[in-house]
Design a protein around this nucleic acid. Structure first.
Lengths: 336, 336
DNA sequence: TCTCTGTCTGTGAACGTGCACAGTAATCGA
DNA sequence: TCGATTACTGTGCACGTTCACAGACAGAGA
């Protein structure tokens, strides 16, 4: 095999096949109106030369890049600690790769990062944006909207008049399932540890909790965490101090529930005998705690898949798309 | 502000500033030999028009893309479960973003994925490659080498005559530190659970273990895991069956150590009273186990930073770079 | 034979940059 | 005064594609 310094171009392929540039381009883009002889010759020439299309040159004329930006807007440590995030990141990347769409990973932690992301998008370097974990009032959202690049979110985005399309699990109903289950087990003083209330998971799961308990969901039985293990531990300790008599707690994420278990153990409470603990997510940590967590399964891979589908629809020119809400499922283990 | 359909180009900026295209380009690329008057006019015009450079057009002529590919070659579930990976992914992305280098995330799980990655690189769409978690004999490596794109790895890559530059923690010495510590605590029958032996962490940590114990490191005291929690659990159970008298175990990763703790608990052994457990990594799980893990701290952020530095050096034309080995540190908690 | 239609092919222009080159004006040393 | 040097600016071309257009050829129908 000859080693040529220069990367082969469409011209080289055309020359090797004895056919013009235009026809090669047609083959590359799957045009009809190409004779079988020409197609065969070109395909052979492509294989021989090892030709790979130059996306830059293509983008220049088509105004499409074949890539999407995956934007993480969250203090990063927290996000990467979250097992849900890993699943969604992996699934989304995989699905996009299947469609031959490249994934550009961008972190928008501070204002400087945001500016960089916006510049990138305004430069037209991505056909779409996939948002992860966006809080209400994130300044990135306005800039994003102005950029005119199609965007979808993994999970709902709270508090905006113009809705960003999204796919998500049914947080509220999931919280109802768990709360009903705990009540059905005969628990009388059920508390909850929520995620941040500017996130859909934080807010909606609290709503579902309140839906079931009604007036029994008093302020004293509600504590707030930040989706970290440590946050769950602190919130649990706070709850125990405020209401020592609680006999169950619905925790808004498995990771926080793992922290809650540690706090309960430190306080000498047995789980589930003294206090039943219900989680949310059914992530990997749910089976690694002691005891394993009874939790609500979110179909995260499905969420990621649907999110990708929505984005690709928009990129392909769909005027608008409907949000997708996916059902959750109660998974019973030993903690409740 | 006027809304123009077309994105402004360098021509628009030049026109707005009343200066030629060439000078605008010079300002953009930080050339000297630009009068202060011209520079001011151009900067104003850029702000007015909201101009953003078109990377595609630039790449087309410079043959540089301003992006690197981040290639994950591992069955994905495992990788994303690994807390080390998260830290390195995050740190590397962050450091690259600081240098205004884009990160293209690519997963090379199966042969189809690999082919896509290689095509992408051979197309010249990335200036460099950052490899994560590459096993000995990964077929991706040969293809990568042939592509001629500069590549570095996070962690050493075993079993190749041509070395891929890397940064890594001193696995072998770290293992020695832990093994010495366990022996120093009076433990007499010390076992180990290794990672896969086709990974540097698996192999080198076993070597360090054997360095200290010498002939006492018999086959019966060595079990193998796969860096997952479950793998650690199984390996620990196996060890207990083979050698019920062991009083310490050095586990090749914190995640596997968490699994080992579960197996020990299931077998009714107290930690650290009956069996001391030493981990490796000092990842987030080390403080979330019960009891918290005595472990070896790997400077992972530093590893990621150095890896990025090596890659950028290569991309900037360095002929070759030396591998970087960073020191580890013993962190004493309660498990040993 | 001639026109018409359906297939197929080649060509020129454009996409938005950077770079080499040419050119100008001002300053300086001899 | 003259060339040499320094500081700065403008222009044409190339990068590798796609797309619109024009044109060629073959077969069908009149």
């Amino acid at each position: 095999m000859r080693v040529s310094r220069r990367r082969p171009t469409i011209h080289d392929v055309a020359a090797a096949a004895g056919i013009s540039r235009g026809t090669v381009s047609r083959v590359l883009n799957g045009d009809r109106y190409v004779s079988t002889a020409a197609r065969a010759a070109i395909e052979r020439a492509i294989a021989e030369t090892g030709y790979v299309v130059n996306r830059n040159a293509r983008s220049l004329v088509t105004q499409r890049t074949g890539s999407v930006a995956l934007v993480l807007s969250e203090p990063q440590e927290k996000l990467f600690e979250d097992p849900n995030f890993s699943v969604m990141l992996r699934t989304a990347t995989q699905r996009l790769a299947q469609r031959d769409v490249c994934v550009v990973l961008m972190i928008a932690g501070d204002a400087g990062d945001r500016e960089r992301v916006v510049r990138y998008l305004r430069g037209g370097h991505a056909d779409g944006v996939l948002l992860f974990s966006t809080h209400a009032g994130d300044p990135l959202l306005d800039a994003l909207e102005r950029s005119g690049v199609p965007a979808v979110a993994c999970g709902a985005v709270l508090g905006r008049e113009t809705v960003i399309p999204y796919a998500a699990a049914d947080d509220r109903e999931g919280a109802r399932q768990m709360t009903r289950y705990l009540a059905g087990q005969g628990r009388r003083r059920i508390a909850t540890i929520t995620g941040p209330l500017d996130t859909p998971g934080g807010l909606r799961r609290l709503e579902g909790f309140a839906d079931v308990l009604g007036r029994r969901a008093t302020k004293k039985l509600i504590a707030h965490g930040d989706y970290t293990r440590r946050g769950g531990e602190l919130a649990m300790a706070e709850l125990l101090e405020r209401s020592p008599a609680i006999d169950a707690v619905f925790v808004g994420s498995d990771l926080m529930a793992a922290g809650a278990l540690a706090a309960l153990r430190a306080a000498g409470r047995r789980v589930p005998e003294d206090v039943a603990v219900g989680g949310f997510d059914d992530s990997a940590v749910a089976v690694s705690t002691h005891p394993p967590l009874t939790t609500i399964r979110q179909p995260l891979e499905q969420v990621a898949k649907e999110t990708v589908r929505l984005l690709l629809d928009l990129v392909d020119g769909a005027e608008s798309v409907e949000p997708v809400i996916l059902p959750t499922e109660l998974v019973i283990r030993e903690s409740a």
